[in-house]
Design a protein around this nucleic acid. Sequence first.
RNA 1: GCCCGAGUGGCGGAAUGGUAGACGCGAUGGACUCAAAAUCCAUUGUCCCUUAAAGAUGUGCGGGUUCGAGUCCCGCCUCGGGCACCA
Length: 921
Amino acid sequence: MDYDFKSIESKWQAWWAANKTFKTVLDNSKPKYYVLDMFPYPSGAGLHVGHPLGYIASDIFSRYKRLTGYNVLHPMGYDAFGLPAEQYAIQTGQHPEKTTTDNINRYRSQLDRIGFSYDWDREVRTCDPGFYKWTQWAFLKMFDSWYDRSMQKARPIACLTEHFAKEGTAGVDAACSQDLDFTAKQWNAMDEKEKSDVLMNYRIAYQGETSVNWCEGLGTVLANDEVKDGLSVRGGFPVEQKKMTQWQLRVSAYAGRLLDSLDKLAWTDSLKEMQRNWIGKSEGCEVVFDTVCGEKHLPITIFTTRVDTIFGVTFMVLAPESDLVGELTTPEQAEAVADYVKQVKKKTERERIAETKTVSGVFSGSYGINPLTGERIPIWISEYVLAGYGTGAIMAVPAHDSRDYVFAKTFNLPIVPIIEGCDVSEQSFDAKEGKMCNSGFLNGMDVKEAIERAKDYVEEKGLGRRKTNFRLRDAIFSRQRYWGEPFPIYYKDGIPTPLPESALPLELPEIESFKPAANGEPPLSRAKDWTYDGYPLEKSTMPGFAGSSAYYLRYMDPHNDNALVDKDVDAYWRDVDLYIGGTEHATGHLIYSRFWNKFLYDLGYVCEDEPFKKLVNQGMIQGRSNFVYRIVGTNTFVSLGLKDKYETTEIHVDVNIVYNDRLDLEAFKAWRPEYADAEFILEDGEYICGWAIEKMSKSMFNVVNPDLVCDTYGADTLRLYEMFLGPLEQSKPWDTKGIDGVNRFLKKFWRMFYDRDNWLVTDEEPTAAELKSLHRLIAKERADIEAFSFNTTISAFMIALNELSALKCSKRAVLEPLVILLSPFAPHIAEELWHALGHEDSVTFASFPEYVEAYTAEDSCTYAVSFNGKTRFTVDLPKSADKDEVEARVRSMEQTAKYVNGLNIIKVIVVPGKIVNIVVK
RNA sequence: GCCCGAGUGGCGGAAUGGUAGACGCGAUGGACUCAAAAUCCAUUGUCCCUUAAAGAUGUGCGGGUUCGAGUCCCGCCUCGGGCACCA
């Protein structure tokens, strides 16, 4: 009987589905293990071989964990709201729900062919009202919460209103958009609208005016991570800065905690570093500078991390968007300033990025007073200072900051060095090292010491205070789109009012066209009766990251209609033990999800404050494109090795008609009508194609569909091969070159059991050599899987199989454990053989075999053998050997005899466990 | 510019500081076959050499530590990724 993967794979896939083999239930008698994949956005293109890479790895790990006694939660679902479906809807008029469902079905059938052990009863779709009910619910909770900085947690807004009614803002330390100051009396005198406006300043989900990335092409605002180089990531439309009122999430309130708890996560250092950079903590100082604008005095606050350089301040700079610009511009400069501000506003984000090297700015006409020296310094306005960071105003120290330096050089402002011996004639001295000079009481101090001393001084004299700033901004949470979660908010007399929980889910209404409505209004303004209780409902929808922020919690309890997740269920599954996905979500989903989880944790809805304990980033699978070379002006194609003899054009050719870089000529002729009468110049009778590593995409004709691999080699081979390709984390090109190797391995494995029509397995006792192979493999597999080194696990399997097949070992006592060992990697063939061995239950429920120390122990250590101090060779000797035994062994070795041939051994020195030195003459 | 990560045969890639190149692909030779496919066996870093033995050399470059370095340290080069006026 041959290894017939087709019938085996479809048979067991059907059997698993019928028996619900992978159904997971809460089981307090077993330890839990939660393995999660980043759920896919079901795009119209379907899966290519790169997508399943992480899914295969997580599936192997899930199956392995089940074999080692864990109750494993391993679910899958779809991130189904989003722009592409909507763009497609706008172009074709098809309802996004329909295309999304179609795409999901396609994904599902592709996933099913690979033999994943998902519990499909737990599937979630973010566009399903039963799911987005809980996205909306979480939003309502955020709307109804504020962040108490003194307690470092989110609390119900009711606590805050109570406090306001009694004491006003006194004693409130809240994360807010703007520092407010009012008394209880003032608060109590406010009307509904005023109170609503005040509370917006504190809510965790709030509405506020902000400078947003407006994308005209898409008709919506975008988050920073949806914009790259001034273009939208989806669609590549230009993006400009615009002030708009938008729903936002006060993610910035959590910046400190998001940063601190990174330390306890088992994520890669590079990913943690990315998040650290994104959060961007900088510890410094706010300092108040008095300013003189004509007759007017106006104190302005700046932020700096280098207070120590305050004696080197020679000017100040305001961001063009800063409110202070208006206040500090003198009449003489008014026109110049207005021109400049107008000019800056006109520029798109893209142009601003492109022009970072050119320096621009204008003098405001006002002066600041250095609080330490009393010196009068000019105040400038320049776009190199950002309105959104710090206070939008800086003190400039050109001698020790490269940006200030360039500015000073351009506008001829003085440069005063305050660190001994530094040369600032060509460039600034930015390093935090050296001794201070020209700096009053700081003179002679080391820079690091001076920073601390200066901060103390500023605080003692009441000139400012220590301050930690973060780069992390609040997340803009509304999108002017249709295909997303509606906000559970209506406007009662203009006051944003939350829907009652009982009204959730607020379902997306049907509309006729998905285009933005007139004057930039969101598509939902086309909906009839988009009202609640007679009042208009919010018309924007939530962004893509809303639905993906807490989906891992919903998998725990997907059918619960009364809670996002039941308390007891959450207490069992707790958090994701292993999360597998790409690095592209480092500063998007993975930040928002952590924020969302911490918020739910603060309110007591979940029991862990971090959602993803361990995170593994699978690399990207790149495409390997193939080229043919057409001789210019002909329909003749020349093979790679001969192409330099002709003038040729390089043309992408479908990789599916190329095998090991050899072109299938007939398939090529059939590929496109214009090639039907193509002619070829071959080398050695073959057409060799050129190749290049590129992104896997339709336009490069390098997309490899996993279905095709399943057809030709089977899912087990696909799974093994994707893992065998190299380390999981590494990006690598898809190249089918080596796939025959793992396929051969499976065939060979099969032949241990079947020889044509004969069942070979016997009940004989295995020999010591056979047991050695088996037990070494078990030990290796356990260690390697735990370390996510799947490629070496497969190598070890191949070695063991070669050894055992050389021994013609078809003994049940050896093969049965081998089947279990193979089952995480190649579940179909393992299931087939497991049943052939007489088991009725799935191999899923078997136990991972134990290894016996005696067969696996490494009991030798390596000695370096040297002659007169020069090492000649090394030798492995038993660890147990004593000094004399080692000496005797080494003296008797053939190699020793070779090196001392014709010489006398004077003395042998043995350093236990390390060196044997033989002194010769 | 700043912060990570990586450089090993024809290729993908292995190597707790201890025989570099495991395992796989490819290639070459052979067995089986009318033939092919499949399968099996052998060889396969480079150089010197007709071949072999034997040797030399060899993990991006230059130094260092060590009896011993792909691995650790210092200084470069190249490639990949992230951030990018964040004061």
